[in-house]
Design a protein around this nucleic acid. Sequence first.
DNA 1: CCGCTGGTTGACTGGCGAATCACCCGCCGG
DNA 2: CCGGCGGGTGATTCGCCAGTCAACCAGCGG
Lengths: 233, 233
Amino acid sequence: MGQQSKPAAESGTRESERRRTILRAAIDVFARKGYHGCRIADVAKEAGVAYGLVYHYFKNKDELLETVFDTGWSGFVTRVRAVVEGEGPLAEKVRGIVEVAFEAYRVDPRAVKVLILEIARSPAGSRINRQTAFVDAIRLSSALFNAAQERGELRPGLDPHLASALLFGNIEMALTAFVVGLADARDPDALERAKSQIADSFLYGVLTGAQAAETSEWKPEKSATKSKAPKRS
Amino acid sequence: MGQQSKPAAESGTRESERRRTILRAAIDVFARKGYHGCRIADVAKEAGVAYGLVYHYFKNKDELLETVFDTGWSGFVTRVRAVVEGEGPLAEKVRGIVEVAFEAYRVDPRAVKVLILEIARSPAGSRINRQTAFVDAIRLSSALFNAAQERGELRPGLDPHLASALLFGNIEMALTAFVVGLADARDPDALERAKSQIADSFLYGVLTGAQAAETSEWKPEKSATKSKAPKRS
DNA sequence: CCGCTGGTTGACTGGCGAATCACCCGCCGG
DNA sequence: CCGGCGGGTGATTCGCCAGTCAACCAGCGG
């Protein structure tokens, strides 16, 4: 997160128009052809600027991607933080997080596409895993689950960290479905339905009320294995 | 999915020792440095063979990756299919699927790493999205959820396709946590715990029994939106 | 003993694309 | 009017790496 190596970066909004143009172009091109599948020339052409200018604003191709990630994620993480730190029961907050993610997708599907598809695919050696950004969000909300567990809202014995990961796993996979065209993103209802279904099934499970109640004691005896330790938390 | 372009391929096991050595090496190297981050020379060195030999067995780098995917996924999909087509209640099958995924990880973490991390996106234009393989598994198990819904085991109104996607989203994210070292994979208990927690929280949700029962009627009034259409199924 | 066949080798090349650099141009301050 | 400065240009350079190929070396059948 955000070591601005740019010297005269200063205030956030102060960055030149051009720089932002290039950034947008980069997002578009990455979304279309993937990071490795495009050359800087493509970005430049898309932005309508000269090849060299890209290097005026960004140290190299890598930093360009880095920046795309940082800006994209920081917005997302900020919003997630707001939800997490707000008031309300766990269920409400979970819905809030899902909402944030889907809203981001509604506003700028392409950016989300890049963020999701290009995760973890950092040019091998270079920099920290972009995964980090995602991990931030997960860690953030795992605090939420931790607190909820202490308040007794979350099933005891469930690792808050894992729960958090699962939530984002749900979100990511659902968005991926839209991103790759498995689900129809032009149907606004589909988005809405997916949203509530994600939150609901995460909170209450996928089984019918009857079935779930049956085992609701949370001791699914068939559940195998040596789960005894309550886990450090 | 298996168009064997190799001419004298014949029976599956009949492939030369060397070919398999190279494949294994490729998996190792891909896992370590990623597809784009490694050169063919690395694979050859890892396999202990000459550079050129790789090209004797594989048309090009792309086909190498392709093959890694196909072999990896086909095994996985086959096992998932077995579970799906077996007998038993939904809950049992879900546990079965989770089991399959984690077993694959236990047996060969590196292969799983490649399969997960390198999903989707190889040189943009080339071939069909590897996503396909994953999608296969999802589609397969969505039949399962469909049937379950008709038997009344699955919450009505939940899109079976989405449910399936969510399950794999859970699995993938959990495995990713291990793959990237977020969770400690050397602790065998951690694997076990994660396994049962995934299945359980997917089936019964994350809320405590009390809370869940409260809303168990499956009409979370706050759940917003215009969900009326039962959806085609 | 010869020559053929098919797996095996690794130096070599061709192209591609990231990054550089010499140069432009409009503006401002002196 | 001059000089210098910072945004802006794009042809050129340069290293890298996928993919080729000529030569090599069993083994084997004649």
